[in-house]
Structure formats: structure tokens, C-alpha cells
């Protein structure tokens, strides 16, 4: 069967390995930023090369289906905190692909103990492409437990 030798259907569909995703497996950690109650989510840059922060177009988060206000969100990377609307100007700060970042999400009422459905999207641009700001979409969804307060 010459014509079908390319197409053998080898390999069963298995779940995407979660270690590659934007959202890491770490628990949701309660936190306070500038007097605002919220939580920290651990994230990675799921790209094959490091990118300047100016190449992050957008980050969106939902917890249990409810959206988080991007105004109050902060990206913590290498000991610094950045507002999302500042990222566009940070062309000299690179996010190295093995480094974690923490995302602070403002959330006034405490989350119940146990697992929560967290969904996140990050849009980046591939800056070397000359045809325009070519967007890459990294979507991630995990059930994450809430860490106990320490």
C-alpha cells in the first residue's frame, strides 16, 4: 500500500505533558501586594528561546471561571515586580526560559481550601519575524490546590 505509508496512525493521543505549560504545578499561594489581597501563580515562558518582556502582549487569568482584573495583576521576575501595562516598554529585561515567574492576581475574598480551576492565556510576539508582530498563544488550564498560609 504505497500511497498510505505516510499515514499509519501510530501513537495514541495522550494528555499534553503539563510540564511544558504556562501554568506550573505549584499550589496557589495567598499573598498581599501593596495592601491588596490576592494570590500568586507560578508560570513559565513556554518558548524555545528567551524573550524581552516587551514581547509579552497580554496575560489573562480566570479562577473558577471568573476573570481577573489585569490592572491589579503583577509579574514578579528576578526580584522585580512589573505592571502588565509596563511590559511593552521593557525591551531590555529578558525572561530566560528556565526561570519561573510569579503572577500576582488580585482576589479579595479567600479561596476555599481544595482545588480550583485556573485558566491562563499569554500572548507573545516572535520578535525576529519581520512580517509583523506575529502572535503566539500559550493557553494553559490546571486544577491547582490552595497552599496553606504560613
Amino acid at each position: 500500500m504505497e500511497e498510505s505509508r505516510h499515514v499509519t496512525g501510530v501513537g495514541l493521543r495522550r494528555p499534553q505533558p503539563k510540564e511544558r505549560e504556562l501554568l506550573c504545578a505549584e499550589a496557589i499561594r495567598p499573598s498581599v501586594h501593596e495592601g491588596q489581597l490576592g494570590y500568586l501563580l507560578r508560570i513559565r515562558l513556554p518558548s524555545y528561546r528567551s524573550l524581552p518582556l516587551s514581547c509579552i502582549e497580554r496575560i489573562e487569568v480566570k479562577i473558577d471561571g471568573r476573570g481577573v482584573d489585569p490592572e491589579g495583576m503583577r509579574l514578579f521576575l528576578g526580584g522585580h515586580s512589573h505592571r502588565l501595562d509596563e511590559l511593552a516598554s521593557l525591551s531590555k529585561i529578558f525572561w530566560w526560559i528556565l526561570d519561573h515567574a510569579d503572577l500576582f492576581v488580585p482576589w479579595a475574598e479567600p479561596l476555599e481550601q481544595g482545588e480550583h480551576e485556573v485558566a491562563a492565556v499569554m500572548v507573545t510576539v516572535e520578535p525576529y519575524m519581520t512580517g509583523g508582530r506575529f502572535p503566539m498563544y500559550y493557553t494553559s488550564r490546571r486544577r491547582l490546590p490552595v497552599a496553606g498560609e504560613d
Partner: peptide
């Protein structure tokens, strides 16, 4: 190397 032609928002 990569040339990050589009790393600045709003201009090349």
C-alpha cells in the same frame, strides 16, 4: 543569533 526586529512596541 536572532535579530529581534520587532521587540519594540509600535516600531521596528
Amino acid at each position: 543569533m536572532f535579530l529581534d526586529w520587532n521587540k519594540f512596541k509600535g516600531r521596528v
